[in-house]
Structure formats: structure tokens, C-alpha cells
Nucleic acid binder design. Structure first.
Length: 424
RNA sequence: GCGUCGGUGGUAGAGUGGUCAAUUACAACAGACUGUAAAUCUGUCGGCCUUAGGCCUACGAAGGUUCGAAUCCUUCCCGACGCA
């Protein structure tokens, strides 16, 4: 992997860059489509590509459980398996420590609504019996499969091994995404663990890369790969991103950025569950510390206003489930805010979702038709809405990128957000 | 014509003397969703008053029994089935 900054955004941490991977170039900042189970839900790779997507992110935990990372490896890696020819990434399963752990069955999400974090009562004192599918142990995390109840113990080494089998171009260190409801003492403890896991992830990664390199030189000497696998993994050497955590606490965020920076990662992820208004400060604290020449990925974030914020604060990559989840659930993005397609007013509206939108859905279908599909619970509904949403977000990031190149980022930001947020 | 069973809110369908403005499902309407346990979830869903609560109109129609009726009785109307 090779990363180059092409232009910086004056007066901020923002930049435009090029990220080269074995499967192609990513022009950054870029929005990464989430394809957890080696599929961007409801979309064919052609639709994903035509939406302008440059890179797809799969998930270690999900693919390990089903179909199993060995199968993905035998298929020739996640990209080949799912017929996505471009760059790929995999998340480490660290987010599932949160979503299946502290957040399981609770009203806590990636971005919390609570304005005053002091109102968030640390729950760990009275909910020790609360059901969780993920429990943190000494060495790693035990997951109870939501598919069949079986128990799986994921360590940093295991996560990296799985990710090497999945074969993406960029992989992530195993981390613990903490709940914002945890107290400071726990945040410190969790951060220590994430840092320790970062070192172990890196160590295992280097070991596997070395192993692959050795195998590669052997197979070159012998003329061919004799493993019988459909794809030759020898020489496979993905980029590994370390993940910065630290919650909303400035000292912890900075400490984490300093520590992760000190390790030999190829790039960085910024993780955590935030209160919305804490996000920009946290990102800024971190990116002021992280080395400029390496790419940064803001994990799981992707509302339009977040994208402007992140890019201005030096984020190069974003991924988020919202375009596809909102789409499947009937909400679409527009320049003037979100629209719920099942609303009665669209039943007889024969205009496209957005009249000047160039996406496949807007070029061929009306609001009335898409509303009809949703009311009729037809599969195409989610596909058409997701197609539009992915196009909308991917292209928003592309336009932001262009605005930096054109020296009008701040004008573009102000104009866009004024229109987007005016109805909310 | 006789007999049997049945007619409940937009629909289907519970309830069979008070705890019933009426379980539930669907539909309808509105909302939520940020490294995907998610094609999911939540709320409203007779009318009126500002929520707690209160008032009114309601279980085919009209009478009646009862302190009290969607629930019991009578007649009528409608439907299904059986026998003529």
C-alpha cells in the first residue's frame, strides 16, 4: 500500500490524497461501502461500482462465523469471493466487542443522542447480569454466536489470522470499542487493553507476512503454487491499520494517538462510540498527533455533516452502514435532508427521488414507484433506495474532495449543510 | 318456507353479563437507524378536551331484562350451510 498527499486544505488538517492498493487506487477522502458479510446489502457489485464506490469493507467476525474464513480464502479472498474487483478492507471484529457486548440489547448506539454525558449513568455497576453476546476476557473476547449460540474466543492473533485468510488489501487491528456509558476508570482499563492488543495484532501480522513472503519465494523458485488453492496467497501482504480509542476523554484520546502512532502501522483507524458533539474534538485531538503521511480512517461514521467535519479534521476514509441500512428501511438522502419514502405524500409523486441526481435509481424510477415497492415490501425497494443513498454519500465525499482541489471547501461545506440541515 | 350457525372498530379475527373504547394480526399514519444480531425497530391508530384524567358515540337494527349488556331475551334485517 502506498499513500500520497496531493493537496492540503489550508487552515485545517484536511487533505486530498491517493491511496494505492494491490487492487486499485483509492482517491481520498473516500467513502467505503460496508459489505459486512461480503455483500453490500441488497446491491450487486455492479450497482456498488456504478454508485462510484472505490472500496468495500467486510467484517472479520461475521465472515469467520459464516461461511468461515477458510472458505473465503479458498475462494481467493474476499474480493474474488464476492466479485468485487476493486480494493477491499476488513474490520477486525472490534466493533462487535461493543455491539454484541456493552451495547447488546440496550439503547446505546455508535453515535449517542445524549447531549450531556454526565447523564449517562455508568451501567456496569448494576447490569452485570445483562445478557451479552460478547464478554471480554484476559486475552481476548469470547463471543456467543448469534447464529447458533456456539462460543468463539477471538484474540488479536486470531482476528489477524482470520483477516489474512479473508485476504483484504487493508485490515484492522483488534480493538475494543467502548461504550460511552462506561466510567473513566473503565475507559482507561479498556484503552490499555486496546493498546496491548494493537501490539499483539501487529506482531502477528508481521509474522504472517513473513510467512507469506517465505512461501512466495519458495513458490517462485519451484515455479508454481502447489497448494491447489484457487488463488495464490503467497506474498500476500495487506496493510494493517492500528486503531485509536479513548472515548471522549482528551487525555486518553491523545495518549492513545501517541501510543498507536509509535507502532509500525500502515495507517490508522479512529474508533469509539461518540456523543455527536464530541466527535469533532476527538478526531481533531487524534489527527493532530497522528503522522501526516499515513492514512486515517474514521470508523463507522458517515452522516453528511460528519463527513465534512471529518475531512476538515484530516480523515481520509469513512465507512458507514447508513446508506444501505437507511435505504433498506425506507429513508433516502437528498440535498435538503432525509426523506422517508413510505410517507403518504410520495404515493402519487412521479418525480425521481432527486431530479438532478445521476444515480441509477433516479434515472429510471419515480418516488411513487419506490414508495409502492416499500409499501408492497418488495425487495427492489431496498435496492433502489440503497443505490441512491450510496451514490449520494460516495459522491458527496467526491465533491468534498474536489472542493479542496478547487480551493472552495468552506463555501461548499456551508452551502451544502445549510441546505441539508435546514429541514431538521 | 323450516332448521342450524353467524353478523365486533379500515380488513381478518378474539372476547360471550362488570376489570371493554374492546386481545391480536394485518393495513394505515408518523418516527428512529452512524466499524450491520437490522429488508429491522418504536409510537399512534372511534371522536372531543391540554397530559394525569375526563366526556361523548360505539360490537347488524330496534326494543327489553339487569344496578350494569359486545356479551342474556324478543322482533326485524343481512350472510353461510342443511332440508324442503
Amino acid at each position: 500500500m502506498y499513500f500520497k498527499i496531493e493537496k492540503k486544505l489550508k487552515g485545517s488538517l484536511g487533505r486530498v490524497g491517493i491511496l494505492e492498493t494491490p487492487h486499485g487506487v483509492i482517491e481520498t477522502p473516500a467513502f467505503v461501502a460496508v459489505g459486512t458479510k461480503a455483500t453490500v446489502k441488497s446491491l450487486s457489485p455492479e450497482l456498488v461500482r456504478d454508485a462510484g464506490t472505490q472500496v468495500v469493507l467486510g467484517n472479520t467476525y461475521h465472515l469467520y462465523l459464516q461461511p468461515g474464513d477458510e472458505i473465503v480464502r479458498n475462494a481467493g479472498g474476499i474480493g474474488k469471493f464476492m466479485n468485487w474487483l476493486g480494493p477491499t478492507m476488513t474490520d477486525s471484529g472490534g466493533f462487535q466487542v461493543f455491539s454484541l457486548g456493552a451495547a447488546y440489547g440496550k439503547d446505546i448506539s455508535k453515535v449517542t443522542k445524549v447531549t450531556d454525558p454526565s447523564l449517562m449513568i455508568p451501567e456496569r455497576f448494576d447490569d452485570s447480569d445483562a445478557p451479552r453476546l460478547a464478554k471480554i476476557g484476559q486475552d481476548g473476547v469470547s463471543f456467543k454466536s448469534h447464529l447458533d449460540g456456539s462460543i468463539h474466543y477471538i484474540t488479536p492473533e486470531k482476528s489477524i489470522e482470520i483477516q489474512h485468510n479473508l485476504g483484504a488489501d487493508i485490515i484492522f487491528a483488534f480493538d475494543e470499542c467502548t461504550s460511552p456509558a462506561e466510567d473513566l476508570r473503565y475507559q482507561e482499563e479498556a484503552l490499555e487493553r486496546t493498546h496491548c492488543w494493537a501490539e499483539r495484532s501487529l506482531k502477528e501480522h508481521k509474522r504472517l507476512v513473513q510467512e507469506n513472503t517465505l512461501r512466495h519465494s519458495h513458490s517462485v523458485l519451484e515455479g508454481q503454487d502447489r497448494t491447489g488453492r484457487s488463488e495464490d496467497f503467497s506474498g500476500y501482504s495487506p496493510a494493517l491499520f492500528g486503531i485509536v480509542q479513548g472515548g471522549r476523554e482528551e487525555s486518553l484520546r491523545k495518549k492513545s494517538a501517541e501510543f498507536i502512532k509509535s507502532l509500525d502501522f500502515d495507517g490508522f483507524g479512529i474508533g469509539g462510540s461518540f456523543a455527536k458533539e464530541d466527535m469533532s474534538t476527538a478526531v481533531k485531538w487524534v489527527n493532530e498527533i497522528l503522522p501526516e503521511e499515513k492514512p486515517r480512517h474514521l470508523l463507522g461514521i458517515g452522516e453528511p455533516e460528519d463527513l465534512f467535519m471529518g475531512i476538515e479534521n484530516g480523515v481520509d476514509l469513512f465507512d458507514c452502514v447508513l446508506p444501505t441500512r437507511l435505504g433498506r428501511n425506507g429513508t433516502v438522502y437528498t440535498k435538503t435532508g432525509k426523506m422517508i419514502m413510505t410517507n403518504a405524500k410520495f404515493r402519487n409523486d412521479f418525480t425521481p427521488i432527486e431530479k438532478d441526481c445521476e444515480c441509477y435509481s433516479c434515472k429510471h424510477y419515480t418516488r411513487a414507484y419506490i414508495a409502492h415497492l416499500f409499501h408492497g415490501k418488495e425487495m427492489l425497494a431496498g435496492t433502489l433506495a440503497s443505490t441512491h443513498n450510496l451514490y449520494f454519500i460516495v459522491n458527496l465525499v467526491k465533491k468534498i474532495r474536489q472542493s479542496i482541489l478547487d480551493d472552495n471547501f468552506f463555501e461548499f461545506k456551508e452551502e451544502s449543510l445549510k441546505n441539508y440541515l435546514k429541514n431538521s
